[in-house]
């Protein structure tokens, strides 16, 4: 093995440990409600469609998991026409 590589390579176990801690915190909390994001997406879509016409394909809901907080990202593309209708 290349000696330089041997010494320069950083340890991988701490990464494994941290990834597991984050993942398991979420696994444990979400047992039984695995399709939370799907449910949120449907309800958000329903709420928006009350006020404007949106294409359901153009709505994306993502949940990004973090150690302290998670981020819910809702991205809705609103066509020019329906935005004006709402206003």
């Amino acid at each position: 093995m290349n000696l330089f590589r041997l010494f320069s390579r950083s340890q991988s176990a701490p990464a494994a440990r941290e990834r597991l801690q984050v993942l398991l915190a979420h696994d444990r909390a979400s047992t039984g409600d695995s399709d939370l994001v799907t449910k949120l997406r449907d309800e958000i879509l329903r709420a928006i469609s009350k006020h404007m016409q949106v294409d359901s394909e153009k709505v994306s809901v993502k949940l990004e998991r973090g150690i302290q907080v998670s981020t819910l990202i809702v991205d809705v593309e609103i066509p020019f026409d329906s935005a004006r209708k709402a206003a």
């Binding site: 340890q11 176990a13 701490p14």
Partner: peptide, 10 residues
Amino acid sequence: ERGDMLKVDD
């Protein structure tokens, strides 16, 4: 010990 495997305590 080299840090390339989870330790017992982990």
